[in-house]
Design a protein around this nucleic acid. Sequence first.
DNA 1: CCTACCGATCGGTAGG
DNA 2: CCTACCGATCGGTAGG
Lengths: 221, 221
Amino acid sequence: MSSSIDEAGLPATTARQTAARRRKVPPEVRHEDKRLAILRIAAQLFAQHGYEATSLDMIGEQLGMHKATLYHYIKNKEEVLYFCLVKSFENIDEVVERMQDRSVPTLERLRYFARSLAHAQNSDFGRCLVMVGLRPLTNEASVDIRRFQRKLDKTVRDLVTEGIASGELKPVAPPLFSAMLFGMFNWVPQWFDANGKFSIDDVVDTFMNTVINGAAATPRR
Amino acid sequence: MSSSIDEAGLPATTARQTAARRRKVPPEVRHEDKRLAILRIAAQLFAQHGYEATSLDMIGEQLGMHKATLYHYIKNKEEVLYFCLVKSFENIDEVVERMQDRSVPTLERLRYFARSLAHAQNSDFGRCLVMVGLRPLTNEASVDIRRFQRKLDKTVRDLVTEGIASGELKPVAPPLFSAMLFGMFNWVPQWFDANGKFSIDDVVDTFMNTVINGAAATPRR
DNA sequence: CCTACCGATCGGTAGG
DNA sequence: CCTACCGATCGGTAGG
């Protein structure tokens, strides 16, 4: 049984709409849509089975096309992972910029960052990032991805440094605080059950309440 | 260049000691030692390259033996991972028992748990557990490992429940607190640099100070 | 402990 | 003449 491309993330379409689309939508756009559908399915399979254990045949099967056909849209398997990871950072600039608005209290910005991070890492591409990572990539490809990661890390470290300077945060090593934050949120896809009793926002609120206010009932020095 | 078995985790031995050992140590023990060396090297390579990207040839090469020879000590590749994961939990009972000593304050037990967890996950077998996980295992093999994981998770959840009841901890959903704690420590092998400026104990102290007392300079409701 | 292989499947590409 | 796609097979390597 094979899923249609539409099920892969594009809006659902009827046969009539598909026909209309075929008449009206330029070929480049159809090509780009199909490419995106491939990336989304690949991201799901990579996150589920790992990079090496996912064959191009499996990706093709999910899309109802043969493996050879994939090569009209992609260069090779590694490039597929590369673009999945790039896409996992697609909203990064917006978030990073909001973190620099000093009119908002540091802790409020930190909560916003956590919420953005948690939702990003629990999307198809974000799950691919945290479950697979960049280990399968060659060095040349992984430097690009590492640049995104360093940018996010620096954003948190700067926020912490700023919060300590302003007296909003207790003194703490910014690299360790940042690593702690990414660790707890990057691990969420390993255990989170979308059908369970907690939502992603529940997770964000619980984690951030604890990190900001502490788990101890009586605050200690 | 191939590492000797001794470099793989056994005590260093001179050629003379090896000869003496060959005379005195029973064959079963030598066999078991070699098997452990295989597991340790495998755990390192699995953590570094992933399970599928690590071939049995690579493991053999590091040990100075051919792939076929490995099969005198192991059944198959999956069994190697299985025992690496089992070994990653070898000190679990001792830690779990100490967590049940109610004469020690909850927060103190929690700090001890975190320290044990952090050190365990940054050993060869622990890194294999958190970097590879149990995804490559068949269902039959992975249930055993999941039992260990649930036992650790339950230990934390029980500790949290107990701390809330005794008034030592603020109310918090125990499963989420547990997931947060494992997430931040399980992620450490992804970024930790043994030659960097922080030690594992620095990481534990910073993480636990923040989780227990909060990052905010002024405690908030 | 090694040489010599196997059935299968991998990523990637040929001609049409 | 182009796009999109097929059946078949390439060279290499996996676990065993």
